[in-house]
């Protein structure tokens, strides 16, 4: 097992390397980061040259990539003074400095990460609990009222883009509820600045974005869980378990559920990092100060050190969760062995 994990980790290296080259070269030409630096006024020609040299933008793209990857603290960057560079490169944990804020990229991302984790963590818990409940019930009580309603809902929700779901929820639970004099929910930010960052405030601000993210995923997940559950329930060993006189609860939750959870684990494991990307839209609509908003804000300003940092983190997450999914698989199903 550990040999398998090590081999997979080694295989991931060229993959990430490849992703980083593609992304870096794309970024290179994605607009001029200097154009928006000085606010409304574009910088003067001599300032431009100086800034370009400072940020290392005067180098050819492949050289820039090389410096981004391994740093330049070992080579002379200024021939006159014999001064060496200061960057240590991504492989030594230095993602460079943001063009916009001049802070290290790691810090910029680190500041926003907890906010996104609060949002996505809550959403993921809601998604798993609700879709498991709906999925299992509609499999056990096939064609019941709940099953029919859930089927109808999932067909519609599956076709609703996240931003539309957000606007709809916002309109109903914030705008309409206020007009009707009902208690309404806040629609932007993480907390009311006059009250401060309290648990109560964050919880209230979480409701709508979490609903937005989860409703669509619940639609697909619950369908998927229903169909895998149905498959398992109709298999021979479940009939045997029932024939032995096991309680229905034990049959369903111990015998059936463990096998039905295999494909569900794949679905959740592989989807998780992509949900993070989906947060871009939700965070933009609800002005949630997370990594998704960070991505959009810095995309418009061509701040590619930050963009590269975010994209690489997500790619690492994708690779990591793929491996994790495979490992959890062997634990759930001892028949599967990796060598």
């Amino acid at each position: 097992m550990s040999r398998y994990i090590i081999r997979r980790l080694i295989q991931a290296v060229p993959l990430l390397f490849f992703i980083s080259i593609v992304l870096f070269l794309l970024m290179q030409a994605s607009g001029d980061p200097l154009a928006t630096l000085g606010g409304r006024q574009p910088p003067r020609a001599e300032d431009r040259e100086r800034l370009k040299r400072q940020m290392g933008l005067d180098q050819p793209p492949l050289m820039q990539y090389f410096i981004w990857l391994v740093g330049n603290d070992w080579m002379v960057v200024n021939d006159e003074t014999g001064e060496t560079g200061t960057r240590r490169g991504v492989i030594r944990g230095d993602f460079g400095t943001s063009f916009v804020t001049r802070q290290p990229v790691i810090e910029v991302i680190w500041e926003r990460m907890p906010n996104t984790l609060i949002l996505m963590g809550t959403a993921e818990v809601v998604i798993i609990i609700v879709s498991l409940t709906i999925g299992v019930i509609s499999a056990v009580r096939q064609y019941s009222l709940l099953d029919t309603v859930a089927t109808g809902f999932s067909f519609v929700a599956y076709s609703i883009p996240v931003f539309l779901m957000g606007l709809m929820l916002m309109y109903i639970f914030a705008v309409r509820f206020r007009q009707w004099g009902l208690p309404y929910l806040p629609i932007s930010g993480m907390f009311d600045p006059t009250v401060g960052r309290t648990f109560d405030q964050i919880a209230r601000h979480l409701v709508l974005p979490v609903l937005t993210i989860s409703l669509i995923s619940i639609a697909t997940y619950s369908r998927y869980i229903r169909s895998t559950m149905l498959e398992v329930i109709n298999s021979d060993y479940i009939r045997t378990a029932r024939a032995k006189g096991l309680s229905e609860r034990r049959t369903l939750f111990v015998h059936a559920f463990k096998n039905a959870s295999l494909p569900i684990v794949t679905l959740i494991g592989l989807d998780l990092p992509f949900l993070l990307a989906g947060a871009v839209v939700t965070e933009t609509i609800f002005a949630w100060p997370g990594m998704g908003r960070l991505f959009i804000d810095h995309l418009t300003r061509s701040d590619y050190p930050v963009l590269m940092g975010l994209l690489m983190m997500i790619s690492v997450a994708v690779v990591f969760f793929q491996l994790l999914t495979d490992v959890v698989y062997t634990w759930l199903d001892p028949r599967i062995r990796y060598t």
């Binding site: 990307a277 871009v280 061509s302 975010l310 994209l311 997500i314």
Partner: peptide
Amino acid sequence: SIPSLLLLLVMAK
């Protein structure tokens, strides 16, 4: 391995 929405945004830019 790159979420397509992010890739789309970068490429659109």
